[in-house]
Simulated assay, not measured.
Amino acid sequence: MQWPAEGPFLRNQLLRLPGTEKPSAIDKQLAMSDVWLDFNGLQGDRVADNRFHGGPDRSLCHYPADHYAHWHRHFPRLRDIRPGAFGENMSTLGLDERQVCIGDRFRWGDALIEVSQPRSPCSNLDRRHDASGLARQLAKSGRTGWLYRTLEPGTVHLGAMLRLIERPCPAASVLRIWRGYMNEDLSNTELDWLTSLLPLASEYRTGFRQRLDSRRRKQDQGTLF
């Protein structure tokens, strides 16, 4: 299976978020030529905060173009936004968080990439687009987008197709992982499964493991008294 992909999008100069001195790489622009993708991201694409963006488990951000119509309706200030506006490096039609799974491997241009985690929306989206509550609504709705790790670096051509190569974890949709992340009442069985989902980024698996260990400690303490 394959999908036409808009991109690559990147930003080679950081912006100041409105009303702050905080730099940001949100609102990316379509590249003017082919771009090299390595293990840390697209060549020339700036990252403002390495704690939350870029690196081996976050080399690319993908946001479905289908979602923009929803945000146009709910946030009048966003009527003119287009792919790249939410910080994504790639956008597609007909592919969303319900269909894409953690561990999915895609060929994009000459590069091989693997879905590593849901994208975690941050309040920079609100500031950049003057849309209070936008990040919270992305999180609540599950329209988060997702991130990739690069398995094989390569050149990404303008308009390159996104081609699915392998789906080793068909039960692990991005939406399921995100719902689990947001749900504090998740069952022990589900938490245990999430911690063992090896293609999932380590920060997510660690978080699920900590929740499971904490719950089991409380349960063990309860049996002592």
Rank of each mutant, 00 (worst) to 15 (best):
Q29M: 06
M32Q: 15
S33V: 00
D38S: 09
N40Q: 11
G41I: 08
L42F: 06
L42S: 10
R46I: 00
R46Q: 15
D49M: 12
D49I: 15
R51I: 02
F52K: 15
F52G: 06
P56V: 15
D57E: 14
R58W: 05
R58M: 11
S59T: 06
C61Y: 14
C61N: 14
Y63M: 11
A65T: 06
Y68D: 08
Y68N: 06
H70K: 08
W71S: 04
H72S: 04
P76N: 12
R77K: 13
L78E: 05
D80I: 09
D80F: 11
D80E: 15
I81L: 10
R82Y: 08
A85M: 07
F86V: 08
F86G: 07
G87D: 09
E88P: 01
N89A: 09
M90W: 03
S91G: 08
S91A: 15
T92N: 08
L95F: 12
L95I: 13
L95R: 14
D96T: 04
C101P: 13
C101L: 12
C101F: 14
R105Y: 06
F106H: 00
W108M: 13
W108D: 07
A111S: 11
I113A: 04
E114S: 01
S116M: 10
S116Y: 11
P118W: 12
P121M: 06
P121T: 10
C122S: 01
C122N: 07
S123P: 03
S123F: 09
N124F: 03
H129Y: 05
L134R: 00
Q137M: 12
A139L: 07
S141W: 02
S141I: 01
S141Y: 02
R143L: 13
R143K: 14
T144A: 07
T144G: 05
T144R: 10
G145L: 12
G145Q: 10
G145W: 12
T150D: 10
L151C: 13
